[in-house]
Amino acid sequence: MDYTKRIRALREDNDYKQREIATLLNVGQRTYADYEHGKTRIPIDSMIKLAKFYNIDMNYICGVSNIKNQFPKQ
Rank of each mutant, 00 (worst) to 15 (best):
Y3D: 03
T4Y: 10
K5S: 11
K5T: 15
K5G: 09
R6F: 02
R6G: 00
R6H: 10
I7M: 09
R8L: 05
R8Y: 13
A9P: 01
A9T: 09
D13F: 09
D13K: 12
N14S: 11
D15Q: 14
Y16C: 01
K17F: 10
Q18F: 10
Q18H: 11
Q18W: 03
R19A: 13
E20C: 06
A22S: 10
L24W: 11
L24F: 13
L25P: 00
N26Y: 04
N26V: 05
G28R: 06
Q29E: 15
R30N: 07
R30T: 12
R30W: 03
T31N: 08
A33N: 12
D34W: 04
Y35W: 13
Y35L: 11
E36Y: 01
E36P: 09
H37Q: 15
G38T: 08
K39M: 04
T40M: 11
T40S: 11
R41H: 08
R41Q: 13
I42R: 01
I42H: 02
P43F: 00
I44L: 12
I44W: 10
I44F: 11
D45M: 02
M47Q: 00
M47E: 04
I48Y: 01
I48L: 12
I48W: 00
L50S: 00
A51T: 03
F53V: 04
Y54D: 01
N55F: 05
I56S: 02
D57H: 12
D57K: 05
M58A: 12
N59F: 03
Y60S: 06
I61S: 00
I61T: 02
G63T: 06
S65K: 05
Q70T: 08
Q70D: 09
Q70F: 05
F71Y: 15
F71G: 03
P72M: 07
P72R: 07
P72S: 09
K73H: 04
Q74H: 08
